[in-house]
């Protein structure tokens, strides 16, 4: 097999020499110095390392780098285009959705996949879309608000009296 692999990362083409046991996370952080993709558990359970591969959300810690041959990868570094922040990024800042920020790149990319497929999601759809991204700081409320805001929607009005329905 040819040793060099071509991968498109953030709309740029890379020719790379990869080891079989390198994960995409290793490639991004160590070989390419793209440290925006975070490492929180390395076993697929926290979502901090989320990237987008061919339009689908993926955990880079559980993806073999060689698997990405010929694919298009979007990381947090590629979320802003032409120097302009993505509305999700703008709204995250605006709504106070960022505290320590370690989970932020991961859920932003999960939310991007959501909005790319469903431009006006409900609150429930937003909650599901980011449920694979653990955040220990925010309690998720402002993250959810910010995603709805980026989609041009606001939080649903509170349930009528006596019916404070669960948000599930």
């Amino acid at each position: 097999m040819d040793k060099t692999v071509r991968i498109n990362i953030n709309r740029e083409s890379y020719e790379l020499e990869l080891e079989p046991n390198q994960t995409l996370l290793d490639l991004l952080r160590e070989q390419l110095g793209m440290t925006g993709t975070k490492k929180g558990c390395e076993i697929g359970a926290c979502g901090a390392c989320t990237v987008i591969i061919d339009g689908e959300p993926a955990l880079s810690c559980m993806t073999l780098a060689l698997r990405c041959r010929g694919k298009e990868v979007i990381t947090i570094e590629g979320m802003a285009e032409n120097g302009r922040l993505h509305p999700l990024q703008e709204m995250a800042i605006e709504h106070g959705a960022v505290q320590c920020g370690y989970c932020t790149p991961g859920w932003l990319l999960s939310a991007k996949v959501l909005l790319d497929n469903n431009p006006s999601p409900t609150l429930d759809e937003v909650r599901s879309a980011i449920s694979g991204n653990i955040c220990r700081c925010t309690g998720y409320q402002k993250i959810e608000e910010s995603i709805l805001a980026a989609a041009g929607r606001s939080l649903p009005a509170p349930a009528p009296e006596g019916e404070s329905s669960p948000r599930v």
């Binding site: 697929g44 989320t50 959300p57 993926a58 694979g132």
Partner: peptide, 9 residues
């Protein structure tokens, strides 16, 4: 199964 990302992978 797992989480959204794990379902995609």
């Amino acid at each position: 199964v797992g989480t959204v990302q794990l379902q995609a992978m």
